[in-house]
Amino acid sequence: METNYKSGFLSIIGRPNVGKSTFMNKVIGQKIAIMSDKAQTTRNKIQGVYTTDDAQMIFIDTPGIHKPKHRLGDFMVQIAEDTLNEVDSILFMINADEGYGRGDQYIIDLLQKVNSPVFLIINKIDLIHPDKLLPLIEKYKSLYDFEEIIPISALEGNNVDHLVDVLKKHLPEGPQYYPEDQVTDHPERFVISELIREKVLHLTKEEVPHSIAVVIENIEKNENEKLLIQATIVTERSSQKGILIGKQGSMLKNIGKQARRDIEALLGSKVYLELWIKVKKDWRNRQNQLHEFGFRSDEY
């Protein structure tokens, strides 16, 4: 390895649904963070590792910063804010189509306390007329002294390669933290549970998506050398359980079918997926339940 190898940790922060997970998946080249059109999809810090011959970037996709409504929400915001003082660079991502909002000002106030360079990433530029971009840039320039301001479309891939090149230039010299073929620091079980949860987000409506957790109960090879994965979808109310099962089990079957497809792509092998549903009332406000489902930080 060259002596001037560069590496560093980069936190991606922003309001919910600005495209943080979409961006990280685009850079890494495969799905490691779940994506949804529903806000507050990401609940834990998800690290994506991008490695080249001369550099390694560890992207931290954080939960969207929002006003919490329960203990899980408190945990999510705390996780996002904690990363600000743990990284080499910060990517503050906004949605070009939404523009400036009160949530952005809250984040900018947090950024006043950090020493790391902050890049403003204006995402979803494919959704606005080019004439609207310059006024948006000027607005944010007036609020904070960003290292650079870079417009992109994570979904379309527009300007993403340029952004990665810019970020690489600002990396400090450092070691290769992860093997070159590793794309995330999360264990297989975590990624599998997230892929199942993503399908619930896509296929259900209203409050159901945000009141569920997915617990991987067992992973083993069966007698046919097929991978057996058994998982429980936990929800808060019996009425939600009925929605998740669907008429004659149709919803649960569809969730399993779509999740299995992504899990097989992730693992590169055939999978037999068994799903159950359990009701644990108000689990998002119960600290012991949050710990059981993997939501842990120094304060929660």
Rank of each mutant, 00 (worst) to 15 (best):
M1H: 14
G14H: 07
R15N: 11
V18R: 01
K20M: 07
S21I: 00
F23S: 06
N25M: 06
I28M: 10
S36N: 04
K38Q: 08
A39D: 13
T41C: 06
T42S: 06
R43E: 04
N44P: 02
K45P: 01
I46E: 10
I46T: 13
Y50T: 02
Y50E: 02
D54H: 12
I60L: 15
D61Q: 14
P63K: 01
P63M: 02
P63Q: 03
G64T: 10
K69C: 00
R71Y: 13
L72A: 04
D74G: 07
M76H: 05
I79D: 10
I79K: 13
A80K: 02
A80P: 06
D82E: 11
T83L: 00
L84G: 03
V87G: 09
S89F: 00
I90E: 01
L91Y: 08
N95Q: 14
A96G: 14
D97L: 00
D104I: 01
I107Y: 01
L110V: 01
K113L: 12
S116M: 02
H129Y: 09
P130I: 00
P130F: 04
P130M: 04
K132Q: 15
K132E: 13
L133G: 13
L133Y: 10
L134K: 12
P135L: 05
P135D: 06
P135G: 08
I137K: 13
D145F: 08
I150L: 12
P151N: 13
I152L: 02
I152E: 11
G157C: 05
V160S: 05
V160W: 05
D161V: 03
D161K: 11
L163V: 08
L163T: 13
V164S: 02
H170K: 15
L171E: 00
Y177N: 04
Y178V: 09
D185Q: 12
H186T: 11
I196A: 04
E198W: 07
E198T: 12
L201W: 12
L201V: 04
L203P: 12
L203H: 15
T204K: 14
E207H: 08
S211A: 10
I212R: 15
A213I: 07
E217Q: 13
E217P: 06
K221T: 07
L227W: 00
I229M: 14
Q230G: 02
A231H: 15
T232R: 09
T232Y: 11
K247C: 04
N254T: 15
N254L: 15
A259E: 08
I263V: 14
E264W: 03
A265D: 15
L266A: 10
K270Y: 10
Y272K: 12
L273Q: 01
E274V: 09
I277S: 03
K278C: 05
K281E: 14
D282I: 02
R284D: 02
R286K: 15
Q287R: 15
Q289C: 07
L290D: 05
F293R: 04
S297G: 14
E299I: 08
